[in-house]
Design a protein around this nucleic acid. Structure first.
Lengths: 232, 232
DNA sequence: TGTTCGTAACGAACATGTTCGTTAGCCTGG
DNA sequence: CCAGGCTAACGAACATGTTCGTTACGAACA
């Protein structure tokens, strides 16, 4: 179930002899998820986890290179909650794809700080792979050419991830308010188009805006051929 | 030139009498850009800046709420380097839009850590607004309906930002290598589509992949009507 | 002029991520 | 069996972001 990180084998604990339970990546992630559920993601610190696992924070770096990598593993665990049922269901492939991506987005919206981290450090575990495989299946069913699907899958997940990550400052609503206030206060002589669009630029809170984005991107991926003679 | 942060006026320094120069947001950003250019973004710490400005790190919090806000201001300063000449040039509006977005992406690629920060804390200064205004002008010229442009502008900038942010772990190439290794090692029985696409999933380093993404999104924004009876 | 209020400046303290060096246990090879 | 090498475990130390409390200055008011 828990795949090894690419190229890196699971470190082998030596705490089997002492009275402490052996450390594992899986155990660390489980502790992180428990703490996160009980106290919130902000409380998932190396020190807090070390305390939970009866060790020192430095020990955790044997198993995870940094907090970003730990966050990626935690997120992969959480992706188990994404509803992939639409993949095998009947119906329009687009709607099912949208449903899967909406479910993914919903999971991420619960943990925007994880999403921000995931922009850089992607999950690499089974749940993530299962999600990728599922989306590829739907794109295939929809007749999306393989080359476009190869790059499109990245865009779709990236869009959802960054959409959720935008709310990472949700702890800090002033950041969003600042942009909103600036957009509202522009001088029409200097920024006529911003002024003309006005509130519409800020509209669409809730699922409407993000599902439109997903739809637009699906349409774009379907309609945009890959360049010929592209370099790799 | 330097607009006030929405709703927040520029704090007024009182260091005019003492032998130290008065602090300003603008001065702090300038110092940050100087340090970043000389020593790299990682060296732009509150302590480093305070030293440069002959003050204490805590003083900087009078002017910026946190490092994210400082990063946003720094990024806005850097956006002065985005080439907006295509906006007023002749030619196909799509190509010119792609050129502007490519230039924006290029700037961000130089500072991926700033891009990651920008996913959450957007710039709110004049350069950012100028960029938004420019892109809106091109979308308008291309006949993109206002409603679609309102939401599309966000997606376009978001895509470029997160694409650049993905390289924030560039300091840590192992993160990317890890995903690549995992994708290469999947069992075809478990993940047949990932296995089938293989290296193509990882291909497209350099501008090909990101410019295709931009093109796909432009096509999608153009082709996807906004929902009717949408909620706000 | 004196007083009051608001706040820029910033040190002290704290929380958190991370590195580096040391120790001890396990495995392998001779 | 013994010696050597590798590395899990983890404390000490350090870097960095941030908060909170104190001080001093300027503006406004009486």
């Amino acid at each position: 179930m828990f795949v090894s990180l690419g190229g890196m084998d699971e470190p082998r604990s030596r705490r089997e002899r002492p009275a402490k339970e052996a450390l594992t990546r899986r155990g660390i992630v489980a502790a992180a998820v428990d703490v996160m559920r009980a106290e919130g993601l902000d409380r998932v610190t190396m020190r807090r986890l070390a305390k939970e696992l009866d060790t020192g924070p430095a020990s955790l770096y044997v198993y995870f290179r940094n907090t970003a990598q730990l966050h990626a593993a935690v997120l992969d665990e959480l992706l188990g909650a994404v509803d992939l049922a639409p993949v095998d269901a009947d119906g329009d492939w687009r709607e099912r794809l949208e449903a899967v991506l909406a479910s993914y987005t919903l999971v991420l919206f619960e943990y925007p700080s994880l999403a921000q981290s995931a922009v850089t450090a992607r999950p690499t575990g089974a749940n993530y792979l299962r999600l990728v495989e599922s989306i590829l299946a739907l794109l295939d069913e929809g007749g999306v050419p393989p080359g476009q699907a190869s790059w499109g899958i990245d865009l779709l997940l990236q869009l959802a991830t960054s959409t959720a990550a935008e709310h990472a400052g949700g702890d800090d609503p002033e950041a969003w308010d600042a942009l909103a206030a600036v957009l509202r206060a522009v001088k029409p002589e200097t920024y006529p188009r911003i002024a003309a669009l006005g509130e519409d630029l800020l509209s669409g809170a809730g699922p409407d805006r993000s599902s439109w984005g997903i739809r637009a991107l699906i349409n774009g991926v379907l309609a945009t051929p890959r360049p010929e003679g592209e370099t790799t």
